[in-house]
């Protein structure tokens, strides 16, 4: 399964989100790759099952086949666990 973590440029926020999402996925025992990427690249991508991003960027990602999961607090593993579980389990 492919998940993408999206921020404006794909080097800061999305990288932190990717790392914490990977931790959560390991704990949940779910096999998935998480790539960090920019909004511009994410808008061209069609192969991600889930897009993790910040609530600010959700509007810019509408219309893609992926499910969008907004995360508010990037270091709150509980929030990420809860939201990923709701989508994946």
């Amino acid at each position: 399964m492919k998940i993408i973590a999206v921020c404006g440029m794909g080097i800061g926020t999305s990288v932190l989100l990717k790392m914490n999402a990977e931790k959560v996925l390991r704990q949940l025992g779910i096999e998935a790759t998480v790539d960090a990427t920019s909004v511009a690249i994410a808008r061209e991508s069609r192969d991600a099952q889930i897009i993790l991003t910040t609530p600010d960027l959700v509007d810019q990602l509408q219309g893609l086949p992926s499910e969008i999961v907004p995360i508010e607090h990037f270091f709150d593993l509980e929030e990420i666990t809860e939201k990923l579980s709701a989508s994946l389990l």
Partner: peptide
């Protein structure tokens, strides 16, 4: 351009 999403957690902004 991208808005205040850089506030990644309560009280913390990551600017770049």
């Amino acid at each position: 351009e991208n808005g205040p999403y850089i506030v990644i957690a309560p009280g913390i902004a990551l600017a770049h």
